[in-house]
Amino acid sequence: MSDTKKITANHVARAVIPDPGFGREVEEKSRTRVSSCFQCLKCTGGCPVTFAMDIMPHQAIRMVQLGMKDEVLESSTIWVCASCETCTTRCPNDIDIAHLMDTLRQTAIAEKITPAQKEILAFHRVFMMTIRFLGRLYEPGMLGALKAWTRTLNRGEIKLGWKMFKKGKLKIVPRAVGESRELRAIFAKAKQKVKGEGSKVKG
């Protein structure tokens, strides 16, 4: 880690004063026993995206155990994880590591931490916004909104988009869910529950 990330005075101070409740909080939320990790490194060994991570999966787990909350929640790792579930499948202690990454992402969002990978969170937000309005994914709308928001459109992507359009792979007219009331109820219920969980943790 020290190779890729400069250790600052801030990091040292945080490492010295960890958040002792963080490990337990994450275990409760994720319903997976992070504390049973004995650092066999199987997760990191099988992870296909470690080349794009700033802390390795086994390090993230150790940091959760130690209560190094800020380091984990501010990492690129939690966003770069592709949810391929290789780690979860191979963990000898049955830790659902892929799901743990979900929990960490959700905690980072709930605590309004600036994501180390802004484009990835922007993608998730635009995707879910599409589902909220239509109930189904509308690829042209989502792609347009994402690229406008993140301002990352480049020539290669325009070419690919145009090619997909010509091949009939981008639908012009979206197909929406008919029961929009049910859809609204789902989103309302999901929001409520997240708030409830947050207050429980604080209390």
């Binding site: 589902i131 109930g135 994914l137």
Partner: peptide
């Protein structure tokens, strides 16, 4: 009839309850 999106990666990455609710329907 009238199925909805499962939420895919973005659903489970950002809101666990929503992820389950979408598939539950």
């Amino acid at each position: 009839p009238d199925w909805n999106c499962c939420g895919a990666t973005s659903g489970h990455a950002t809101n666990e309850r929503l992820d389950v609710l979408l598939s539950a329907r």
